[in-house]
Simulated scan of single mutants.
Amino acid sequence: MMPDLGKYADAVLSSYAVSILLIVALVAFSVMRARKVRAQLDEVERRSRKHG
């Protein structure tokens, strides 16, 4: 059920679309960065146990 946005429908819907895309991109970037940092942390912990 979509409200009638009149002549501003294109602007409003495109703003929503851009916002959603940016949020998805930020979440994806955060997840990728977290995985990279986690792998680096695991490597540091592995080396510390080896030389422990």
Rank of each mutant, 00 (worst) to 15 (best):
R46Q: 06
A39E: 12
S15Q: 13
L5V: 05
A17M: 10
S15L: 14
V44C: 03
V12C: 05
A39K: 10
S14P: 05
V18R: 15
V18Y: 12
D42I: 00
Q40S: 11
Y8S: 15
Q40W: 03
D4T: 11
M2C: 12
D10K: 10
L26M: 10
A39R: 09
L41R: 04
I23G: 04
Y16C: 10
D4F: 15
S30D: 09
A9I: 13
S19L: 12
Y8H: 14
M2F: 13
G52N: 02
A17R: 15
D42L: 03
A28W: 07
P3K: 01
R35L: 06
Y16V: 15
V24D: 03
V27A: 05
L21S: 13
E45C: 10
S48P: 00
D10L: 10
A11I: 15
S15W: 11
A11D: 15
R49D: 07
A39Y: 02
S19G: 14
I20K: 10
E43Y: 01
S15H: 12
V12R: 06
M2G: 12
A17N: 13
V24G: 04
M1I: 02
E45H: 10
V18T: 14
R38S: 11
K36C: 07
A9K: 15
A11S: 14
M32P: 00
Y8L: 14
M1E: 05
L5M: 11
R46K: 08
A34E: 02
A28F: 11
E45Q: 12
A9Y: 14
A25L: 09
S19Q: 12
V24I: 10
L41Q: 05
L5F: 07
V31G: 00
A11Q: 15
A9C: 13
D4N: 13
K36T: 08
G52Q: 01
M32H: 06
A25I: 06
L41E: 02
S14G: 09
V27T: 05
V18G: 03
V44N: 05
L13E: 14
G52V: 00
A17F: 04
F29L: 04
I23Y: 04
Y16G: 06
R46G: 01
M2H: 14
Q40D: 12
R47T: 00
K36R: 13
D4A: 09
S30K: 04
R35K: 07
S48I: 08
V18Q: 14
Y8W: 13
R49L: 09
E43F: 00
M32W: 08
S48N: 09
S19N: 13
V37G: 02
S48F: 05
V18P: 00
M2Y: 12
A34G: 07
L21D: 13
G52I: 01
L41D: 02
K36F: 07
G52F: 00
